[in-house]
Design a protein around this nucleic acid. Structure first.
Lengths: 226, 226
DNA sequence: GTCTATAGGCTGATAGAC
DNA sequence: GTCTATCAGCCTATAGAC
């Protein structure tokens, strides 16, 4: 795939994917037309069928591009030692920190400098909320490892919780991260503050502090100021 | 509006709104066609223009119907005394309890017996994530009071927090409630437990306990068992 | 690989009969 | 208030020239 990306003969293919991310993010799958995407990519709309076997194929390729760019780098998280091993708790704590940081910083923070990154997040968030049948397998394949990793960290940090409680906690934390991403639209409206994304990381960290304190893991993100 | 709802001459109008909620929830604004909606409502598609001045008007009317059915009843919450008045903290605590209870029980608990209720939640969640320009004013108008109320409760409970922290906390708690509602589908899949919704309130309370403990408001929902 | 031209179908809106 | 018929425009997909 990298060979293809470097191939100038595939330049229009790459431009189409980029334009697709932007346009699908703005208007959704049904709202976006391949003519508009092609216009944006300075390419011919017939190339959508040639390169991607149609609109749905282009959509899937756009999602794959997002996962390789944004999600896969995040997944380079250190392996956790087996529970009970010496230093397992400290390793889990570090893993937990990395997980949150990866989501908050790499995955969700966006300074608006790269419109494609911004659009990629919007598109992924919408796809998580309302997955298309054709892309749900792709979605699960890429996201499942994260839930497993998070639950493993939590188990080492809170061995007193039973399986049901661990699951509820994992879902809650994960949901919190996703929620802030999903709520950007309405938060912006309520605050009447178009520049609000700048404060996103601060707000997320603020609540994560509360949640972790409630979970009995206040040392996950020690606050220099407190 | 109630007079109209009771008028049998407006029966098809009502059926169109109901079908619109279902179809827009399933396919989004652009994915849903007025012909399909009309077919579902056993009405003529030309009535969309007659009753609602077009598709966008029907969409707005569907949102309004959702707000009157689901959101407005929740808003019948007691007024809070002014901050600093005697008993203000206790009143805020009670208001906070009522707010959570109203959301968990009235707004979110649904056994799936009513498909329209189910679709209404999906539609509202999607609209919050990606508000349409034409409906954002409606959205803010209906949701703003809840954020204000929740923030007022929190302010009385945690007078040490500044405005930014209060907002972040309110959004977080609100997001938690919405997240659990939205995630029911995927949670069911992951757990392979079709009866999972029965435990919904328990799981939500479980996490809310964590969050409130972190917020320093552990007495909001005292646990008889603890 | 890239283009033009076009087919075939669906869309929302509307005019006008009843 | 409800219907049929229809319009103009957009959509995706494709055939075929280069």
């Amino acid at each position: 795939m990298n060979a293809q990306a470097a191939d100038p003969a595939h330049a229009s293919r790459q431009r189409l994917i980029e334009a697709a991310i932007l346009t699908f993010a703005e208007k959704g799958f049904d709202g976006a037309g391949i003519r508009e995407i092609a216009r944006r990519a300075k390419a011919n709309s017939a190339l959508v069928a040639y390169h991607f076997c149609g609109k749905e194929g282009l959509y899937l390729e756009a999602l794959k591009a997002i996962f390789s760019r944004k999600v896969s780098p995040v997944s380079q998280l250190a392996d956790l030692p087996s529970p009970g091993a010496p230093g397992a708790r400290e390793a889990a704590l570090q893993g937990f920190r990395n997980y949150i940081r990866a989501f908050v910083i790499e995955l969700m923070s966006c300074d608006g400098s790269d419109p494609v990154d911004e659009a990629a997040m919007i598109l992924m968030a919408r796809e998580m909320q309302s997955p298309r049948p054709a892309s749900s397998a792709l979605l699960v394949e890429h996201i499942q490892p994260y839930v497993t990793y998070l639950t493993a960290c939590l188990q080492a940090l809170r061995p007193d919780l039973d399986e049901e409680e661990l699951f509820a906690t994992g879902v809650s934390i994960q949901g919190l991260l996703i929620h802030f991403r999903n709520s950007l639209g309405i938060i912006r409206l309520i605050r009447s503050n178009p520049g609000y994304p700048e404060d996103l990381e601060k707000v997320i960290r603020h609540h994560i502090d509360f949640s972790l304190r409630g979970l009995g893991i206040p040392e996950a993100f020690p606050q220099p100021g407190n």
